[in-house]
Write a protein that binds this DNA or RNA. Structure first.
Lengths: 238, 238
DNA sequence: AACTACAACTTGTATATACAAGATAATTTT
DNA sequence: AAAATTATCTTGTATATACAAGTTGTAGTT
C-alpha cells in the first residue's frame, strides 16, 4: 500500500463505487444512489460527489442522464485496452491462460527499438518478457512486452501467469494506463512465431505494435504481438 | 448552427481554448493562463474554469501540473480515431485520395447487420456508402460505412471525396465521435475485395469492424473495412 | 558562493448555496 | 377516461469562499 499519505475524499468515493460496480453489486442499467443520497452517506457536498462521479464517467463505469441519475454501464473488460473476445457469443468470458516463454528480466533498451524513447526512459532501462496466451488449449497470441524500469521494485519476481499485467501494475505500483497508440498490420506467418501459434506459414496473422502511456511520466508499456484470428478476433475500446 | 439554445459558459471557455490551441496560438509545452487569470477574463469563478480545463484534459489538449499550471500537450491528429500512417518516415502526411464506389443512399438496416442496433436506431434507417482509398495511386483501403440516418438532412448529396467524413459531420451537423470499439482480424484476401485492392487472393489483409459512437444519442457510425498493410500500416490512438 | 527562509505564485480539494432543467409520478382539471 | 398541471425527484450549471500543497524566484543569512 504505497498510496499517498492522504487520499482525497472524492478519490475514496470513486474507488468505493468502482469496487461495488466491478464486484457486481450493481448490474448494467442500475442507478447509483442519487448525488444527494451520496452526500449524506459521505457527509459531503455535491461538488465532491460530482467530482467522484465524473471520474467514474471518464473511466466508463457509468453514464449519466439529466433528470434521471447515474446509470451503471456495461462492464468493459480492459477499457481502452486491447482485449480478446471470442468469435461466437458466450465465449467472451473464457479466461486466457498464459505461458511465460521468457521470464521478466531487467535489460537495456535495444539500439533499434521500435518506438522512439525519451532520454530519461532510455536511462531507466526496461523489463522484458515474452508471453504466449492460450484459449481452449490453443495458442492464440504471442506477445513481447517492454516496460520502462521506473520504480517497479521486485517486478521481475512477480507471477505474470494468472493475473492481468494491468491489474498488477495498478494494485502494486499505482500505475495506470492512460492513453496509447497502436500500429496494425496483417502478415503471413512465416516468422518463427507461426510455429508457436501452431499455424502454417501462409496463415494470416494480426501484427500489432503498441505503446501504452501511464499516469507515471516516462513509464510506458510497449508490446509487439502476433495474433491468430482464425477463430477469435481482437477487440478494443477507445 | 443547430447548437443548443443556450451554451453553458464552461463549454464556451473549453471551445475558445481548444480553438486557440488547435489554431497554434499556443505550442507544445506552453502554459495556458492561470485559473485565476481566466476567472478575470471570463468574469467567473474557479469552479467553472476548472470544469472547462477538465474537459481539455480529457480531450488530451492539455496536461496539468500541481503548482505549475496547465500545459499545452502535443497535438494529435485524429484523437481516438483510426488514421492511416505511412510505413516509412516522412510519408505520413501524404493525402489519401478517395473514390466513391457507391454513393451515399438512404437504406433500411440489413436484417443481419454486424452490430446489434437499438430500436430507435433501427427505426431511423441508415445512410450507406462505399469508398476505396488510395495512396500514391495504389488502392489501400476498402471501406463500407453505415451511418444512422438521424437529423442528417442532405447528407446523401454531400461530396465525400475530398473532405474527411468526421469533419463533415462535425462542421455541418455538430456530430462528434466520442468513443468506439473495433474488432480486428487478419484474413486472406480471397473475397471480391482483393481484386479492388489489387492484391492476389492469398495476400493477407487487415479486416476491421468498427462502431463509433457520437455525441448524438443513437447516431452511430459503423464501418467494415479491409486494408492492405504491405507498404503502410493502420494506426490509431486512444 | 551556497544555503535557508519566505513570499507569491500555481493547481488541488472541499464546503455551502442557488437556481435551471430534464424525468416521473401524483394530482387536478377537463 | 383522458389530458393538463403540479410536486418532487433527478442531474446540470454557477457563484463565493477557504485552505492545502506543489513550484519558483527572491531576499536574507551563513
Amino acid at each position: 500500500m504505497n498510496r499517498k499519505e492522504t487520499t482525497p475524499l472524492y478519490r475514496k468515493i470513486t474507488d468505493d463505487l468502482k469496487t461495488a460496480i466491478e464486484k457486481g453489486s450493481y448490474s448494467k442499467g442500475d442507478l447509483l444512489p442519487s448525488e444527494n443520497d451520496l452526500c449524506k452517506t459521505y457527509n459531503t457536498t455535491r461538488a465532491t460527489i460530482r467530482q467522484a462521479l465524473g471520474a467514474l464517467m471518464i473511466s466508463g463505469h457509468i453514464t449519466r442522464k439529466h433528470g434521471k441519475g447515474s446509470i451503471v454501464a456495461e462492464p468493459k473488460n480492459g477499457l481502452g485496452i486491447l482485449s480478446l473476445k471470442g468469435f461466437t457469443a458466450g465465449i467472451g468470458n473464457k479466461p486466457l491462460s498464459t505461458v511465460i516463454l521468457q521470464k521478466p528480466s531487467k535489460q537495456a533498451w535495444s539500439e533499434d527499438f521500435y518506438y522512439a524513447l525519451e532520454e530519461d526512459e532510455l536511462a531507466a532501462g526496461c523489463i522484458f518478457f515474452v508471453r504466449l496466451r492460450y484459449l481452449d488449449q490453443k495458442p492464440l497470441l504471442y506477445e513481447e512486452t517492454h516496460i520502462t524500469n521506473l520504480n517497479l521494485p521486485h517486478f521481475t519476481s512477480r507471477n505474470l501467469e494468472n493475473r492481468s499485467l494491468f491489474r498488477i501494475l495498478e494494485e502494486n505500483y499505482q500505475v495506470k494506463v492512460k492513453e496509447g497508440e497502436q500500429k496494425i498490420w496483417a502478415i503471413n506467418g512465416n516468422e518463427p512465431v507461426s510455429k508457436l501459434l501452431n499455424v502454417t506459414s501462409g496463415h494470416p496473422l494480426v501484427h500489432m505494435k503498441r505503446r501504452l502511456q501511464t499516469n507515471i511520466r516516462n513509464l510506458n508499456i510497449y508490446s509487439s504481438l502476433y495474433c491468430n484470428t482464425e477463430e477469435y478476433f481482437l477487440q478494443d475500446y477507445f
